Amino acid sequence: GKMTGIVKWFNADKGFAFITPDDGSKDVFVHFSAIQNDGYKSLDEGQKVSFTIESGAKGPAAGNVTSL
């Protein structure tokens, strides 16, 4: 299901971020390909987002990341 959280930090050079979920679970890795914005895919620290949890090769990662 959809979860919500806050972007903890975003590394534009490497194209990934971490989200701190609102439910208090541990921070979730985000690859820029999961960001659903049109055009430039970036996130801002402190931004509120919704996302799903996908199981990636290196463990859980956020999918369908959308700005709220």
Score class of each variant (00 low, 15 high):
residue 29 F to R: 06
residue 21 P to H: 01
residue 64 N to P: 09
residue 35 I to Y: 03
residue 60 P to D: 14
residue 62 A to E: 11
residue 1 G to F: 08
residue 60 P to T: 13
residue 13 D to Q: 08
residue 3 M to W: 05
residue 60 P to S: 08
residue 26 K to N: 08
residue 68 L to R: 15
residue 22 D to G: 03
residue 2 K to H: 10
residue 2 K to P: 09
residue 59 G to W: 07
residue 36 Q to L: 14
residue 2 K to W: 13
residue 36 Q to S: 09
residue 53 I to G: 04
residue 4 T to Q: 07
residue 29 F to M: 14
residue 42 S to A: 13
residue 13 D to S: 08
residue 47 Q to T: 10
residue 7 V to L: 10
residue 49 V to Q: 00
residue 63 G to M: 05
residue 47 Q to E: 06
residue 24 G to L: 02
residue 51 F to C: 02
residue 62 A to V: 11
residue 27 D to R: 02
residue 44 D to Q: 14
residue 47 Q to Y: 05
residue 17 A to T: 01
residue 55 S to P: 11
residue 64 N to Q: 08
residue 20 T to M: 07
residue 64 N to H: 09
residue 10 F to E: 01
residue 14 K to S: 14
residue 57 A to F: 07
residue 46 G to A: 02
residue 37 N to Y: 13
residue 65 V to Y: 01
residue 44 D to V: 13
residue 33 S to E: 12
residue 16 F to M: 12
residue 12 A to K: 11
residue 17 A to H: 00
residue 9 W to E: 04
residue 28 V to K: 04
residue 8 K to E: 01
residue 44 D to E: 14
residue 16 F to V: 14
residue 10 F to C: 14
residue 47 Q to M: 12
residue 11 N to V: 04
residue 15 G to Q: 12
residue 35 I to L: 09
residue 35 I to A: 02
residue 2 K to Q: 12
residue 32 F to M: 12
residue 34 A to T: 09
residue 50 S to R: 06
residue 28 V to R: 05
residue 23 D to A: 02
residue 12 A to L: 08
residue 22 D to Q: 04
residue 48 K to L: 08
residue 54 E to R: 05
residue 38 D to P: 11
residue 4 T to N: 04
residue 48 K to Y: 09
residue 1 G to T: 12
residue 7 V to K: 00
residue 17 A to G: 15
residue 10 F to V: 15
residue 62 A to M: 09
residue 6 I to W: 04
residue 49 V to R: 00
residue 45 E to A: 12
residue 60 P to E: 13
residue 65 V to C: 15
residue 8 K to R: 12
residue 64 N to R: 04
residue 17 A to I: 06
residue 20 T to Q: 11
residue 27 D to L: 04
residue 63 G to C: 15
residue 7 V to D: 00
residue 29 F to K: 07
residue 39 G to Q: 08
residue 30 V to T: 01
residue 24 G to D: 02
residue 52 T to G: 04
residue 68 L to Q: 15
residue 62 A to T: 10
residue 34 A to N: 11
residue 61 A to S: 11
residue 9 W to Q: 03
residue 43 L to Q: 01
residue 49 V to I: 06
residue 27 D to F: 02
residue 56 G to A: 11
residue 37 N to P: 08
residue 13 D to G: 06
residue 16 F to Q: 03
residue 13 D to Y: 06
residue 41 K to L: 14
residue 28 V to G: 00
residue 33 S to P: 05
residue 19 I to Y: 00
residue 65 V to W: 01
residue 62 A to G: 10
residue 46 G to V: 02
residue 42 S to C: 15
residue 56 G to N: 08
residue 68 L to E: 15
residue 58 K to W: 09
residue 37 N to A: 09
residue 13 D to K: 07
residue 35 I to W: 15
residue 2 K to N: 09
residue 42 S to P: 07
residue 25 S to C: 05
residue 44 D to Y: 15
residue 45 E to R: 12
residue 24 G to E: 02
residue 10 F to D: 01
residue 23 D to M: 02
residue 33 S to H: 09
residue 6 I to K: 06
residue 40 Y to Q: 13
residue 32 F to R: 06
residue 45 E to W: 12
residue 13 D to H: 08
residue 46 G to R: 03
residue 55 S to H: 14
residue 44 D to F: 15
residue 14 K to Y: 13
residue 54 E to K: 06
residue 66 T to Y: 00
residue 51 F to W: 10
residue 14 K to N: 08
residue 46 G to L: 03
residue 27 D to A: 08
residue 22 D to F: 04
residue 19 I to C: 01
residue 7 V to W: 01
residue 4 T to W: 06
residue 43 L to H: 02
residue 25 S to G: 12
residue 38 D to T: 07
residue 65 V to M: 05
residue 28 V to S: 01
residue 23 D to I: 02
residue 12 A to H: 10
residue 59 G to I: 08
residue 40 Y to E: 13
residue 54 E to I: 12
residue 43 L to E: 01
residue 60 P to K: 08
residue 9 W to C: 15
residue 2 K to A: 10
residue 2 K to L: 13
residue 7 V to T: 00
residue 24 G to F: 03
residue 33 S to C: 15
residue 50 S to E: 10
residue 33 S to Q: 06
residue 11 N to S: 09
residue 59 G to E: 12
residue 42 S to E: 12
residue 36 Q to I: 13
residue 33 S to V: 05
residue 45 E to F: 12
residue 38 D to G: 11
residue 18 F to G: 03
residue 50 S to H: 07
residue 45 E to D: 05
residue 29 F to L: 14
